[in-house]
Design a binder for these strands. Sequence first.
DNA 1: AGAAAATCCTGCCTGC
DNA 2: TGCAGGCAGGATTTTC
Length: 289
Amino acid sequence: MPELPEVEVVRRGLQDHVVGRTLARAEFYGTRVARRHLPGAHHLAEQLGGNHVAEARRRGKYLWMVLDTPDGSRHGLITHLGMSGQLLVEDPGAPDEKHLHARFTFDDEGPELRFVDQRTFGGMALSDLDDDGVPEAIEHIAPDPLEAAFDAKAVVAAMKKRHSAVKRALLDQDLVSGIGNIYADEALWRAQVHGERLCSTLTKPTLHRVLDHAREVMLEALGQGGTSFDALYVNVNGASGYFDRSLNAYGQEGRPCRRCGTLIRRESFMNRSSFSCPRCQPRPRTLGR
DNA sequence: AGAAAATCCTGCCTGC
DNA sequence: TGCAGGCAGGATTTTC
Protein backbone atom coordinates (compact mmCIF):
# COMPACT_ATOMS: atom_id res chain seq x y z
CA MET A 1 0.00 0.00 0.00
CA PRO A 2 2.74 2.49 0.56
CA GLU A 3 3.26 3.95 -2.89
CA LEU A 4 5.33 6.94 -3.94
CA PRO A 5 3.62 9.64 -1.82
CA GLU A 6 3.61 7.52 1.32
CA VAL A 7 7.25 6.55 0.86
CA GLU A 8 8.19 10.19 0.27
CA VAL A 9 6.50 11.15 3.55
CA VAL A 10 8.68 8.56 5.29
CA ARG A 11 11.78 9.84 3.50
CA ARG A 12 11.09 13.34 4.78
CA GLY A 13 10.76 11.92 8.26
CA LEU A 14 14.20 10.35 7.94
CA GLN A 15 15.53 13.65 6.64
CA ASP A 16 14.23 15.43 9.73
CA HIS A 17 15.08 12.86 12.38
CA VAL A 18 17.94 10.67 11.20
CA VAL A 19 20.12 12.43 8.63
CA GLY A 20 23.20 13.94 10.23
CA ARG A 21 23.33 11.39 13.04
CA THR A 22 25.77 8.52 13.52
CA LEU A 23 24.64 4.94 14.03
CA ALA A 24 25.87 3.22 17.15
CA ARG A 25 24.38 -0.18 16.44
CA ALA A 26 21.92 -2.02 14.19
CA GLU A 27 20.02 -5.16 15.16
CA PHE A 28 17.94 -7.39 12.92
CA TYR A 29 15.40 -9.84 14.27
CA GLY A 30 14.76 -12.94 12.19
CA THR A 31 16.14 -13.52 8.73
CA ARG A 32 13.30 -12.37 6.54
CA VAL A 33 13.88 -8.61 6.75
CA ALA A 34 17.37 -9.04 5.29
CA ARG A 35 16.50 -11.76 2.75
CA ARG A 36 17.56 -9.51 -0.14
CA HIS A 37 20.88 -8.85 1.56
CA LEU A 38 22.59 -12.00 0.34
CA PRO A 39 25.43 -12.10 2.92
CA GLY A 40 22.72 -12.25 5.60
CA ALA A 41 21.34 -10.28 8.53
CA HIS A 42 24.42 -10.73 10.70
CA HIS A 43 26.69 -9.30 8.03
CA LEU A 44 24.26 -6.43 7.45
CA ALA A 45 24.27 -5.46 11.11
CA GLU A 46 28.08 -5.63 11.26
CA GLN A 47 28.48 -3.25 8.35
CA LEU A 48 26.37 -0.49 9.90
CA GLY A 49 27.92 0.34 13.26
CA GLY A 50 29.61 3.75 13.30
CA ASN A 51 28.12 4.78 9.95
CA HIS A 52 27.15 8.41 9.51
CA VAL A 53 23.81 9.07 7.81
CA ALA A 54 24.58 11.56 5.06
CA GLU A 55 21.33 11.59 3.07
CA ALA A 56 17.87 10.04 2.81
CA ARG A 57 16.89 9.40 -0.81
CA ARG A 58 14.07 7.78 -2.73
CA ARG A 59 13.26 6.41 -6.16
CA GLY A 60 9.72 5.19 -6.69
CA LYS A 61 8.82 3.08 -3.69
CA TYR A 62 12.45 2.47 -2.69
CA LEU A 63 14.13 4.42 0.07
CA TRP A 64 17.78 4.46 0.88
CA MET A 65 20.05 6.11 3.40
CA VAL A 66 23.44 7.18 2.07
CA LEU A 67 25.91 6.07 4.72
CA ASP A 68 29.52 7.13 5.28
CA THR A 69 31.46 4.31 6.87
CA PRO A 70 34.19 4.77 9.50
CA ASP A 71 36.83 3.82 6.92
CA GLY A 72 35.78 6.60 4.59
CA SER A 73 33.75 4.70 2.02
CA ARG A 74 30.11 5.20 1.16
CA HIS A 75 27.22 2.82 0.58
CA GLY A 76 23.41 2.76 0.66
CA LEU A 77 21.02 1.06 3.05
CA ILE A 78 17.96 0.27 0.95
CA THR A 79 14.54 -0.04 2.56
CA HIS A 80 11.39 -1.22 0.80
CA LEU A 81 8.23 -0.99 2.88
CA GLY A 82 6.42 -3.70 0.93
CA MET A 83 2.77 -3.89 1.97
CA SER A 84 2.96 -2.96 5.60
CA GLY A 85 6.47 -1.80 6.48
CA GLN A 86 6.91 1.17 8.80
CA LEU A 87 9.98 3.17 9.79
CA LEU A 88 9.34 4.67 13.19
CA VAL A 89 11.35 7.17 15.22
CA GLU A 90 10.83 6.34 18.88
CA ASP A 91 12.19 6.77 22.35
CA PRO A 92 14.54 3.92 23.23
CA GLY A 93 12.34 3.02 26.18
CA ALA A 94 9.18 2.45 24.13
CA PRO A 95 7.97 -1.17 24.24
CA ASP A 96 8.90 -3.35 21.28
CA GLU A 97 6.25 -3.69 18.61
CA LYS A 98 4.90 -7.16 17.86
CA HIS A 99 6.36 -7.12 14.36
CA LEU A 100 9.63 -5.35 15.08
CA HIS A 101 12.25 -6.52 12.57
CA ALA A 102 15.10 -4.05 12.99
CA ARG A 103 16.35 -1.46 15.46
CA PHE A 104 18.92 1.29 14.89
CA THR A 105 20.43 3.16 17.80
CA PHE A 106 22.57 6.28 17.54
CA ASP A 107 25.66 7.50 19.28
CA ASP A 108 23.82 10.60 20.54
CA GLU A 109 21.50 8.37 22.58
CA GLY A 110 18.54 10.19 21.02
CA PRO A 111 15.47 8.52 19.52
CA GLU A 112 16.01 5.17 17.80
CA LEU A 113 14.81 4.11 14.38
CA ARG A 114 12.74 0.93 14.07
CA PHE A 115 11.52 -1.14 11.15
CA VAL A 116 8.15 -2.72 11.91
CA ASP A 117 6.40 -4.89 9.31
CA GLN A 118 3.32 -7.02 9.82
CA ARG A 119 3.06 -8.74 6.45
CA THR A 120 6.82 -9.06 5.98
CA PHE A 121 6.89 -8.09 2.30
CA GLY A 122 9.29 -5.31 3.18
CA GLY A 123 13.03 -5.61 3.56
CA MET A 124 16.43 -3.96 3.91
CA ALA A 125 19.70 -4.48 2.08
CA LEU A 126 23.07 -2.83 1.69
CA SER A 127 24.29 -1.89 -1.76
CA ASP A 128 27.12 -0.04 -3.43
CA LEU A 129 26.14 3.26 -5.02
CA ASP A 130 26.67 4.20 -8.64
CA ASP A 131 28.03 7.56 -9.81
CA ASP A 132 24.61 9.15 -9.36
CA GLY A 133 24.33 7.88 -5.80
CA VAL A 134 21.70 5.26 -6.74
CA PRO A 135 22.14 1.78 -5.25
CA GLU A 136 23.33 -0.71 -7.83
CA ALA A 137 20.83 -3.23 -6.51
CA ILE A 138 17.92 -1.11 -7.75
CA GLU A 139 19.35 0.16 -10.99
CA HIS A 140 16.60 -1.68 -12.85
CA ILE A 141 13.99 0.57 -11.18
CA ALA A 142 12.89 3.32 -13.58
CA PRO A 143 12.82 6.99 -12.55
CA ASP A 144 9.54 8.04 -10.96
CA PRO A 145 7.32 10.87 -12.26
CA LEU A 146 8.56 13.32 -9.62
CA GLU A 147 12.22 13.00 -10.58
CA ALA A 148 14.07 15.38 -12.85
CA ALA A 149 15.34 12.31 -14.72
CA PHE A 150 11.78 11.25 -15.58
CA ASP A 151 11.30 11.29 -19.35
CA ALA A 152 7.57 11.09 -20.04
CA LYS A 153 8.05 11.05 -23.78
CA ALA A 154 10.35 8.03 -23.60
CA VAL A 155 7.95 6.21 -21.28
CA VAL A 156 5.05 6.87 -23.63
CA ALA A 157 7.08 5.53 -26.55
CA ALA A 158 7.93 2.39 -24.58
CA MET A 159 4.32 1.90 -23.54
CA LYS A 160 3.09 2.27 -27.09
CA LYS A 161 5.16 -0.78 -28.04
CA ARG A 162 3.74 -2.95 -25.26
CA HIS A 163 1.12 -5.57 -25.95
CA SER A 164 -0.25 -5.58 -22.46
CA ALA A 165 -2.91 -3.81 -20.43
CA VAL A 166 -2.21 -0.17 -19.61
CA LYS A 167 -2.67 -0.80 -15.89
CA ARG A 168 -0.08 -3.56 -16.00
CA ALA A 169 2.34 -1.09 -17.58
CA LEU A 170 1.63 1.54 -14.91
CA LEU A 171 2.46 -1.01 -12.23
CA ASP A 172 5.71 -2.10 -13.93
CA GLN A 173 8.43 -0.47 -11.84
CA ASP A 174 10.99 -1.01 -14.60
CA LEU A 175 8.94 1.24 -16.88
CA VAL A 176 7.87 3.98 -14.47
CA SER A 177 8.27 3.64 -10.74
CA GLY A 178 6.28 4.67 -7.71
CA ILE A 179 2.78 3.81 -8.94
CA GLY A 180 0.86 1.06 -7.14
CA ASN A 181 -2.69 -0.21 -7.28
CA ILE A 182 -4.28 2.84 -5.65
CA TYR A 183 -2.71 5.57 -7.78
CA ALA A 184 -2.96 3.49 -10.95
CA ASP A 185 -6.73 3.30 -10.48
CA GLU A 186 -6.93 7.00 -9.65
CA ALA A 187 -4.87 8.01 -12.70
CA LEU A 188 -6.97 5.82 -14.99
CA TRP A 189 -10.20 7.27 -13.55
CA ARG A 190 -8.96 10.80 -14.13
CA ALA A 191 -7.87 9.95 -17.65
CA GLN A 192 -11.14 8.09 -18.28
CA VAL A 193 -9.37 4.99 -19.52
CA HIS A 194 -10.13 1.38 -18.54
CA GLY A 195 -7.03 -0.32 -17.15
CA GLU A 196 -7.43 -3.39 -19.33
CA ARG A 197 -7.14 -1.48 -22.57
CA LEU A 198 -3.98 -2.49 -24.37
CA CYS A 199 -1.17 0.06 -24.43
CA SER A 200 -0.61 -0.47 -28.13
CA THR A 201 -4.20 0.47 -28.95
CA LEU A 202 -4.08 3.76 -27.05
CA THR A 203 -2.84 6.93 -28.72
CA LYS A 204 0.34 8.57 -27.51
CA PRO A 205 -1.58 11.64 -26.28
CA THR A 206 -3.82 9.34 -24.25
CA LEU A 207 -0.83 7.55 -22.74
CA HIS A 208 0.66 10.93 -21.96
CA ARG A 209 -2.55 11.97 -20.25
CA VAL A 210 -2.56 8.83 -18.11
CA LEU A 211 1.01 9.48 -16.99
CA ASP A 212 0.33 13.15 -16.31
CA HIS A 213 -2.62 12.21 -14.14
CA ALA A 214 -0.53 9.67 -12.27
CA ARG A 215 2.00 12.39 -11.50
CA GLU A 216 -0.67 14.87 -10.47
CA VAL A 217 -2.61 12.55 -8.22
CA MET A 218 0.56 11.45 -6.44
CA LEU A 219 1.57 15.09 -5.91
CA GLU A 220 -1.85 15.89 -4.47
CA ALA A 221 -1.68 12.88 -2.18
CA LEU A 222 1.77 13.94 -1.02
CA GLY A 223 0.32 17.33 -0.13
CA GLN A 224 -2.10 15.58 2.22
CA GLY A 225 0.46 13.33 3.85
CA GLY A 226 -0.40 10.29 1.73
CA THR A 227 -3.25 7.78 1.68
CA SER A 228 -4.12 5.50 4.57
CA PHE A 229 -6.96 3.06 5.16
CA ASP A 230 -5.88 1.82 8.55
CA ALA A 231 -3.01 2.09 11.00
CA LEU A 232 -0.66 0.16 8.70
CA TYR A 233 0.63 3.13 6.79
CA VAL A 234 2.03 5.89 8.97
CA ASN A 235 4.83 8.45 8.91
CA VAL A 236 7.87 8.13 11.17
CA ASN A 237 5.87 9.59 14.03
CA GLY A 238 3.03 7.10 13.64
CA ALA A 239 0.52 9.51 12.06
CA SER A 240 -1.65 8.78 8.99
CA GLY A 241 -2.26 10.90 5.90
CA TYR A 242 -5.77 11.69 4.77
CA PHE A 243 -5.79 11.52 0.97
CA ASP A 244 -8.19 8.56 1.22
CA ARG A 245 -10.95 11.17 1.48
CA SER A 246 -10.03 12.37 -1.98
CA LEU A 247 -10.06 9.00 -3.76
CA ASN A 248 -12.40 8.86 -6.73
CA ALA A 249 -12.10 5.21 -7.71
CA TYR A 250 -9.98 3.03 -5.45
CA GLY A 251 -12.08 1.39 -2.75
CA GLN A 252 -15.22 3.22 -3.93
CA GLU A 253 -17.25 0.23 -5.16
CA GLY A 254 -20.97 1.00 -5.14
CA ARG A 255 -20.45 4.73 -4.62
CA PRO A 256 -21.53 7.18 -7.33
CA CYS A 257 -18.82 8.36 -9.69
CA ARG A 258 -18.04 11.97 -8.80
CA ARG A 259 -18.08 12.84 -12.49
CA CYS A 260 -21.20 11.12 -13.83
CA GLY A 261 -22.99 9.47 -10.91
CA THR A 262 -22.75 5.91 -12.24
CA LEU A 263 -21.87 3.45 -9.48
CA ILE A 264 -18.17 2.57 -9.30
CA ARG A 265 -17.50 -1.10 -10.03
CA ARG A 266 -14.87 -3.48 -8.75
CA GLU A 267 -13.22 -6.01 -11.05
CA SER A 268 -10.50 -8.56 -10.52
CA PHE A 269 -7.31 -7.93 -12.46
CA MET A 270 -3.79 -9.21 -11.95
CA ASN A 271 -4.89 -11.04 -8.81
CA ARG A 272 -6.04 -7.84 -7.17
CA SER A 273 -8.96 -5.41 -7.29
CA SER A 274 -9.45 -2.68 -9.83
CA PHE A 275 -12.00 0.07 -9.34
CA SER A 276 -13.42 2.11 -12.20
CA CYS A 277 -16.48 3.92 -13.51
CA PRO A 278 -18.47 1.75 -15.96
CA ARG A 279 -19.54 4.82 -17.93
CA CYS A 280 -16.42 7.00 -17.93
CA GLN A 281 -14.10 4.00 -18.35
CA PRO A 282 -15.77 1.48 -20.64
CA ARG A 283 -14.13 -1.93 -20.90
CA PRO A 284 -12.27 -2.58 -24.16
CA ARG A 285 -14.44 -4.33 -26.73
CA THR A 286 -12.02 -7.13 -27.40
CA LEU A 287 -11.08 -8.99 -24.26
CA GLY A 288 -7.70 -9.84 -25.73
CA ARG A 289 -4.46 -10.13 -23.87
C1' DA B 1 12.13 -12.76 -25.33
C1' DG B 2 8.13 -10.89 -23.75
C1' DA B 3 4.00 -11.66 -21.13
C1' DA B 4 1.58 -13.56 -17.41
C1' DA B 5 0.95 -16.54 -13.55
C1' DA B 6 2.72 -18.20 -9.06
C1' DT B 7 4.75 -17.09 -4.81
C1' DC B 8 5.85 -15.00 -0.39
C1' DC B 9 3.15 -13.33 4.43
C1' DT B 10 -0.17 -11.89 8.49
C1' DG B 11 -4.39 -10.04 10.17
C1' DC B 12 -8.96 -8.98 9.53
C1' DC B 13 -13.42 -10.03 8.00
C1' DT B 14 -17.25 -13.02 6.48
C1' DG B 15 -19.97 -17.07 6.40
C1' DC B 16 -21.14 -21.52 8.02
C1' DT C 1 -17.38 -20.09 19.39
C1' DG C 2 -14.41 -21.59 16.18
C1' DC C 3 -12.63 -22.48 11.95
C1' DA C 4 -12.02 -22.24 6.99
C1' DG C 5 -11.60 -19.30 3.27
C1' DG C 6 -11.20 -14.86 1.00
C1' DC C 7 -8.92 -10.61 0.68
C1' DA C 8 -5.27 -6.96 0.96
C1' DG C 9 -0.96 -6.75 -2.86
C1' DG C 10 4.72 -5.27 -4.43
C1' DA C 11 8.44 -7.47 -6.26
C1' DT C 12 10.75 -11.52 -7.54
C1' DT C 13 10.66 -16.14 -9.47
C1' DT C 14 8.83 -19.42 -12.44
C1' DT C 15 6.29 -20.83 -16.34
C1' DC C 16 4.44 -20.44 -20.87
